[in-house]
Design a protein around this nucleic acid. Structure first.
Length: 132
DNA sequence: GCCAACGTTGGC
DNA sequence: GCCAACGTTGGC
């Protein structure tokens, strides 16, 4: 099972929108590295939803409801994400950067990557921060 | 094939 | 508002 993180801006389509809609097609990714991760997602995989911009925090956990399929434009794909549960508290970028266990996190290493993998250890560390 | 110019993202 | 990172485009 893979674990993932997707970035979005609250103002464009955030966690609250995902909850309201009960799920959405995660499309429009036009970056090859990010798209590669979309293609690697399997139904059931958990996905952290991170708000870039003003919030700069992971706020909820979604699940991959359906693996990648063509998103309408040649060569690009989308997956369906559905909300699972909100994090007990937002985990800010600052908190992630301050956590040694997360220093190699793909998102921190390459801040512009909109879809990135999260290791099991990183996932656990983030959930632990949310609960403390 | 190289590289400069340019656009976008996202943190500060 | 600025800047760093980085991807894309287009001239050569």
């Amino acid at each position: 099972m893979g674990r993932w993180l997707v970035k979005t801006e609250r103002e464009s389509y955030g966690w609250d929108d995902l909850v309201r809609d009960g799920g959405t097609e995660w499309d429009g990714v036009r970056n090859h590295a990010a798209a590669k991760h979309l293609r690697a997602m399997a139904a059931g995989d958990p996905v952290l939803v991170y708000h870039s911009g003003a919030d700069k925090a992971a706020v909820g956990i979604a699940r991959v409801a359906r693996a990648a399929r063509p998103d309408g434009e040649e060569g690009w794909v989308s997956v369906r994400l559905e909300p699972a549960e909100p994090l007990a508290a937002p985990v800010t970028l600052a908190a992630m950067k301050a956590t040694p266990a997360l220093k190699d996190m793909a998102m921190l290493r390459q801040s512009r990557l909109s879809v990135s993998p999260v290791t099991a250890a990183e996932w656990d560390a983030i959930v632990a921060i949310a609960r403390r």
